[in-house]
């Protein structure tokens, strides 16, 4: 079963500059591009540039180009445009490196990448989910997230297989989701019912 949010009607409205559709397009694909580039450790500055350029090119393609032949594959189309833009930016950066060879090693920007996602309420929920785990399982997650140790090394050290690690991650993430995300989703829906301006379902704004 596929969960496509996009169809011919959506593309038509976006091409016609319907404000609500434009707003959804910007929020949804802005989030997608953020997550995609974050997973590739792209700096927040470049990610923002790539996001803007990608969304602009997609809108131009819809309004000035040949349009979209397969509306149900609109997400895939945006992903392809994003890949092209990212390659161009990386190519440009490699032609004009910001740092020379003798420059000091670049600072770890992981904190900056995480910053928009971290807050006290989420940390409490994660800490609660982690504390419900056995010590050994918590140590495994510490090696994954904090030490960023290689999976095979974690499995060897903790005498587990890759499947156990995946199940453990899934379980911990599900507990976090139960403790924090669903609660906030209900809160978001309630706010929407009372007419507040929140995005239903967009419980983790990025």
């Amino acid at each position: 079963m596929e969960f496509h949010a996009f169809d011919a009607d959506y593309i038509q409205k976006l091409t016609a500059a319907d404000p609500e559709t434009e707003s959804h397009f910007s929020a949804y694909f802005g989030k997608f591009i953020f997550l995609k580039l974050r997973a590739r450790r792209i700096s927040p500055e470049m990610a923002e540039d790539v996001r803007q350029e990608t969304l602009l090119r997609v809108l131009k393609a819809l309004r000035q180009g040949s349009g979209i032949q397969q509306p149900e594959r609109f997400g895939s189309f945006v992903n392809t445009v994003c890949n092209n833009v990212l390659l161009e930016f990386l190519h440009k950066q490699s032609r004009h490196p910001l740092l020379d060879e003798d420059a000091p090693e670049r600072a770890d920007d992981r904190v900056d990448l995480d910053a928009p996602l971290v807050n006290e309420q989420r940390k409490r929920a994660v800490a609660k989910a982690l504390d419900e785990l056995a010590d050994r399982d918590r140590e495994i997650l510490r090696l994954v997230f904090f030490e960023e140790m290689d999976r095979s090394e974690i499995c060897r050290r903790m005498s587990i297989d890759g499947e156990y690690l995946r199940v453990l991650l899934h379980r911990a993430k599900s507990r976090f989701e139960a403790a924090y995300v669903r609660k906030n989703r209900v809160f978001g829906l309630m706010m929407a019912l009372f007419g507040c301006n929140v995005l239903p379902g967009c419980f983790i704004t990025v």
Binding site: E2, F3, H4, A5, F6, Y28, F29, K31, F32, L35, K36, R38, A39, E72, R73, F74, G75, S76, V78, N79, R110, L113, D114, L117, V118, R122, K123, A125, V126, A127, A129, L130, L141, R142, F145, F146, A172, K173, F176, E177, V181, G201, F203, I204, V206
Partner: peptide
């Protein structure tokens, strides 16, 4: 890119990973 459910899953997992790092 076209699946809202998976996008939310990735979003949740990303938030969990970032906050787990912060907690550790």
């Amino acid at each position: 890119a076209g699946c809202t459910l998976c996008l939310d899953e990735v979003s949740t997992a990303t938030a969990f990973a970032a906050n787990a790092r912060a907690v550790f």
